[in-house]
Amino acid sequence: MRNWIRRRRAEREATCAEVAQVLQSYLDGHVDDLTARRVSRHLEHCRRCGLEAETYQAIKDALARRGREVDAQTLERLRAFGTRLAEEGRAGEADSPA
């Protein structure tokens, strides 16, 4: 019974202050499962925290859309450079006395 009460308390919904504290980490997927469940239950009905979560998620989405395009030629040069380094390394090993 005592364990059940303790579990129920731990599972209780997060407060607005608690959500404000962890909201960004929650949206980044960097909170534990229990915290995620408590925050998620709160966001289901709290308008203010829900708007806040939507705003931060929209910021993250806008930044992700900005996704940096890497220059294909630069990438190709670097891959060739890496391959050359690996080959030189292997050749060096073969040349070195056992």
Binding site: D28, H30, I59, K60, L63, A64, R66, G67, R68
Partner: peptide
Amino acid sequence: VELIDVDGLTY
């Protein structure tokens, strides 16, 4: 911000 939200690295 760029490392995490643009480049997709973890914390």
